[in-house]
Structures are given as C-alpha cells and as structure tokens.
C-alpha cells in the first residue's frame, strides 16, 4: 500500500510541477503584455503618428521611425520573399532527397537561427564599408537575408503537403513541369505560402541588431534609400537607454506598436495555417 501511495504522490507532485511550468511560461507572456500596454498606452496620441522624433525635452512622435521601418521591411521582404520562394520550390519540387538538397536544407536551418547581428556585420562588410556610408538599402539587404530562410522553410513544407496525385494528374494532361508547379502546386499551397511570408514579415519587423550598423538612425524623415534611415526598433533602443523621461515614454509607445504589429501578423499567419489544416 505504501508503495502505491508513494508512487501516486510522486505522480501528483510531478504533474503539478509540469502545470507550474506551463503557468510560469504563460505568466511571462501576460506580464510582458500588461506592462507593455500600460506603459505604452500612456504615450499613445495622434502626435506619435504625425510628428518626427524629437530632441530631448521637446515633444514629438515616431513618424519617421514608423515610415522607415515600413520602407525597409517592404524592401527587404520584396527582395527576400521571392528568392526564398524559388529556393523552397527547388527543394520541394526538384531537389527532393538529393545530396545537394539535403545540404542546402541543413544550411538553411542553421541560417534560420544564426545570430542576426552577424548578418548585420556581413552586410556592413560587403556594402557599408565599401560605400563608406550607412544607408537604408543596406538595412533592407540585411532584412532580406533574414527573410530568405524563413520563407524557404515554409514554402518547402507547404509544397510537400500538396498531394503528389494532383501533380501527376496535371502532368498526365501534358502540362510542362513549370506549369504544374505554378498552376497546381502553388495554388493548392497558396494559404501556406502566404503564411510563410507573413511570418517572415513578423520576424523581420522587430529586428534591431542587423539595422544598428547598416541603416543606422536618422532624426528626420528621409525617403532617400541611399541615406541613413530611422526605424522603430533602433529608435526604441536609443530612446530606452537615454536618461530623458520623454524619450523613454516614446520608446515604450514604440515598443507597444512593434509588438502589436508583430503579434497581429503572427496570429493572422496562424489563423491562415489553421484554415488550411481544416480543409
């Protein structure tokens, strides 16, 4: 009897520990979101979206940072997503289990979790150091390099979910391989492909490290791709570490905006993915 009681006690203790672990994880999410909303909402006003980042002591907003982030993210995704899409297509449709495909898959998985600051250093070495000045497009290039592995991975996974019989049916009609891929495989996997791009945007729009020494920062708005450009994460970094209260407030507000955007994107991506799973 005592051995039963002991085993049951051990079981219930470790079950509670597992529950505690889950609560611990969720508690962090809740704590971070609550503080973020509380601190961020205090500074939320129309000025945030209509004015430039201020000098210390002045009032201002985050307009140039928001626009800068948008421009660089759009550029980065516009370049990175097609490259990742095509590379993922090759792995799923042509490469399959060949040695080269296995190697590329392996390297891509490593790039997926490689430190983003190293990508920043790489772009600095290749573009900024040669040009001798910081620029928005080197920032966008760094983001594009981060987009490729994410899109590649989801594209391959999603294309693999498309049943082979669909491809065979299309091929039997005499369609060339390219058309089978474009008109059958892509269409069947459409929701999944969009999910991949959304996830990539979410990943990239919060990135700070690779922008620090590529796009740098800019106190004013500039649409010049060849000049330094402000971005939300870099502004948050600079303002949060400053001793000025109004800068810190703007940093919190910026943090709230970035998090809201990123979470919204990843929830949308997940909902799209779930829809697909149901079908």
């Amino acid at each position: 009897m005592s051995i039963y009681a002991r085993r049951r006690a051990a079981d219930s203790i470790s079950q509670k520990l597992c529950l505690a672990a889950a609560v611990f994880g969720l508690a962090w999410l809740v704590a971070i979101l609550i503080v973020l909303i509380y601190e961020g909402a205090k500074g939320l006003s129309p000025a945030v979206f209509t004015q430039m980042t201020p000098a210390p002591g002045n009032s201002g907003g985050l307009l140039n940072a928001i626009l800068g982030s948008l421009i660089m993210t759009v550029l980065g995704v516009a370049v990175g997503a097609p490259l990742g899409l095509l590379a993922g297509t090759w792995l799923a449709e042509y490469g399959n289990h060949s040695k080269l495909a296995t190697v590329i898959r392996f390297i891509n998985d490593i790039l997926l979790s490689a430190p983003s600051i190293v990508i920043g250093l790489f772009v600095y070495e290749v573009i900024v150091a040669r040009q001798k000045h910081f620029s928005a497009w080197s920032g966008a290039a760094a983001l594009a390099i981060l987009v490729i592995p994410v899109v590649l991975r989801t594209t391959e996974d999603m294309l693999r979910l498309v049943p082979g019989s669909l491809r065979e049916a299309a091929t039997a009609l005499g369609l060339p391989r390219t058309y089978v891929i474009r008109y059958v495989a892509y269409r069947a996997a459409k929701a999944g492909l969009i999910t991949g791009v959304l996830l990539a945007i979410a990943r990239v729009s919060g990135e700070t490290a690779p922008l620090l020494f590529t796009a740098l920062n800019n106190q004013f708005f500039s649409a010049d791709i060849n000049a330094p450009m402000a971005s939300l994460p870099v502004v948050i970094f600079q303002f949060a570490l400053s001793p000025y209260k109004d800068w810190q407030q703007l940093a919190w507000t910026g943090a709230l905006l970035v998090t809201a955007a990123v979470l919204l994107l990843s929830i949308t991506a997940r909902a799209l993915g779930a829809q697909r799973g149901k079908k």
Binding site: G206, F237, A240
Partner: peptide, 19 residues
C-alpha cells in the same frame, strides 16, 4: 500562447528587462 512568447521581438524583452 507559448509560441507567441517566441514571436515577441527581442528588443521588447530588452526594454522590459531593463525597466
């Protein structure tokens, strides 16, 4: 929810950690 924790940008963890 646990995966959303992974989605929060690292700069947010930074500012939260600091303050």
């Amino acid at each position: 929810a646990i995966e959303l924790l992974a989605g929060i940008p690292s700069i947010i963890y930074g500012i939260w950690g600091l303050f």
